[in-house]
């Protein structure tokens, strides 16, 4: 499978990663390499094998519905680039 630059640009945009022209070339080549490796896996017959959705052989990990202490407000906002009162402040983005 080959991957064109447009797809790479789109994926980069979705992940909010800025790539300059040089990086775009480099990453495209690397992705192409990764995808051709995945293609190799596709040549195996997996008809009767359930897809792996989790790598550990565990299931039903649950906790009781009990309250635990939340963070004190000073700690919550400690690393916020901008804050006002109890709130985080972010650029206004209306979808």
């Amino acid at each position: 499978m080959s991957i064109d630059k447009k797809t790479v640009e789109n994926v980069a945009h979705l992940a909010r990663i800025n790539l300059d022209k040089k990086e775009l070339d480099k990453i495209s080549g690397q992705l192409e390499h990764i995808l051709s490796f995945i293609d190799k896996l596709s040549s195996l017959n997996t008809d009767n094998i359930a897809p792996t959705s989790h790598i550990l052989p565990i299931s039903n990990v649950l906790r009781k519905d009990e309250l635990r202490k939340s963070l004190p407000i000073a700690k919550t906002l400690m690393n916020a680039p901008a804050k006002q009162g109890n709130f985080f402040v972010v650029p206004k983005i209306i979808e």
Partner: peptide, 30 residues
């Protein structure tokens, strides 16, 4: 384990898990 109570002071019912801090792990509520 943060409370779900409605109408509390902003950002007083948060913890590393629901704030998505690195290294925190979610465990689902039975």
């Amino acid at each position: 384990g943060c409370s779900t109570e409605f109408g509390q002071e902003p950002n007083t019912q948060v913890c590393p898990v629901c704030l998505g801090f690195p290294g925190s792990l979610p465990v689902f509520n039975q």
